[in-house]
Amino acid sequence: MKLRTRLTLWYGGAFFAAGAVLIAVVYLIVRDRIAQNLPDFGASTDEILAVRSQLGVDEQELLSFIQMAVDRQEAANDATLRAVLIWSVAALVVVGLLAVVLGFLMASRVLRPIDAITDTAKRVADRSLHERINLKGPGDELKRLADTFDGMLGRLDRAFEGQRRFVANASHELKTPLAINRTLLEVAAAEPGADHRIRDLAANLLAVNERHERLIDGLLTLAGSEQAPADPAPVDLADVVAHVAAQFAAEADAAGVTVETEAAEAVVVGDAALLERLVSNLIANGIRHNHSGGTLRVATGTADRRARLTVANTGPVVAAYEIDALFQPFRRGEGRDRIESVRGVGLGLSIVDSVTRVHEADLAAVSEPEGGLLVTVVFPEPA
């Protein structure tokens, strides 16, 4: 039950309880006052005889007349009490229903700042740390809560911005010496007097240097994928899959992996570069963690107006408890670091996870019984 409904029920219940107590008190007061105002017909015999002699009526007739007057007065009093009770209850019901409606409106009014805080928190969860509530009004509890939340967002924004700036600056600074190393190694290997040992050493160092460059590029992409798309636009995943699959055709042939694509229209609103990197990393992962003669199936489509990307590959069996670790940086299956693998730098699936979260997509990965992994990415409906 929503808080607005609970507040309305509490307000309505309190109103009905207070109204019931008020009706009971009024009823008792009216009954007491009526009982006190009844005429006292318990006169003495001498008084009755004096009245009888003055009126010239029989004593029995006088007593009967007095009793009839008392009965009629009591009946009138009872009718008055019943009317007071009935009309009071009816008024309580009518006014109580109006009070419930008023309570709902009041609860909506009171909870409106909380709705604003919730909406901002949802946008912040999508990496929009620049959002602020900026709640206007008196400095009450809700205003202080909103200001505290804004302050927390400001500190988080500065912290994340500093982290992204550090990664970008560090990666940029590391690229320069790696580029110099690559140039020096290529020049040394190309010297006419270089023997085979120098050329072999240069080739090995160039491979290590290239791997470090890929690692830095991956870190830059991972840092960039943590930010929401600045200018989202419609992107057809079918076109992206066709383009990326063509790029990996040579690598798939060399690895003996058959790539099967089923690219149906699947439009996503987001960043084209990040979506291309997502598809590229999934296809690369499906080829490099496969076996000769294996297959890689890539499919796109739309179900319930939600774009869907599915990548399934054969390969070694992956334990269910290891799947979550695959999407962590520098991790691979079989309980080893992916940093040890010559096939990648261990950031591919981490970037996939980050891109899906930025695009508010649902990412699911399950291990195939015969071996390999089935990865499904379901994107939200386009606005």
Rank of each mutant, 00 (worst) to 15 (best):
H243I: 04
L178N: 10
D337C: 01
T148Q: 13
I23T: 06
A146D: 10
S171P: 03
N285A: 03
H289N: 07
V110Q: 03
Y321W: 03
Q54T: 12
T80E: 05
A242E: 15
M152F: 09
V318T: 14
G270Q: 06
S88I: 08
Q67G: 09
T356E: 14
S350G: 06
V311L: 01
A202Q: 07
V167L: 04
L174K: 06
T221I: 10
R82C: 01
P232V: 07
V378P: 00
A194Q: 08
L222E: 14
G218E: 02
A254Y: 04
G139V: 04
L349K: 00
A90Y: 03
A319K: 13
D32C: 02
A76Y: 08
R33W: 11
R158P: 00
P234Q: 06
M1I: 08
P369R: 00
D200K: 11
L156M: 15
L220I: 03
V366M: 06
L22G: 01
N181A: 14
A170D: 12
A383R: 11
V298E: 01
N209W: 04
L282H: 06
T118L: 13
V93Y: 07
V187T: 14
I34Q: 14
K143G: 10
P138G: 12
V241R: 02
A20F: 14
L274M: 13
H172L: 09
Q227S: 12
D150N: 01
A18Q: 05
D271L: 01
A35S: 13
K2L: 11
G103D: 05
A116P: 00
E74H: 08
A76V: 12
P380Q: 06
R336G: 02
G151R: 08
R199V: 13
I66Q: 13
A254K: 10
V95M: 12
G13P: 03
L309C: 03
Q54A: 12
G348S: 15
E59S: 05
L153V: 10
V95Q: 06
G12L: 11
I48R: 09
I29Q: 10
G348Y: 07
R72A: 10
S128W: 08
L296G: 07
P316F: 02
L55T: 06
A107N: 08
A24L: 13
R123I: 03
P113S: 06
L63Q: 12
S88C: 02
E262A: 10
I216D: 08
D337G: 11
A255D: 12
N281H: 15
T118D: 15
D195Q: 03
A83Y: 07
S128C: 04
H359L: 05
N181P: 00
R112K: 13
E210H: 11
L220S: 14
L38W: 04
I283W: 07
L9Q: 10
T221W: 08
I287F: 00
N313A: 03
E334G: 05
R357K: 15
L237G: 07
L373E: 10
V110T: 12
D200G: 02
A188E: 14
T221H: 05
I48E: 11
L309Y: 05
F248K: 10
D253E: 15
E265W: 01
V345C: 03
V89P: 01
I323A: 03
G13A: 15
A273T: 11
A168V: 08
D195E: 07
T5M: 04
A121L: 14
V375K: 04
G344S: 13
L105T: 05
L111S: 00
A365I: 04
R331A: 14
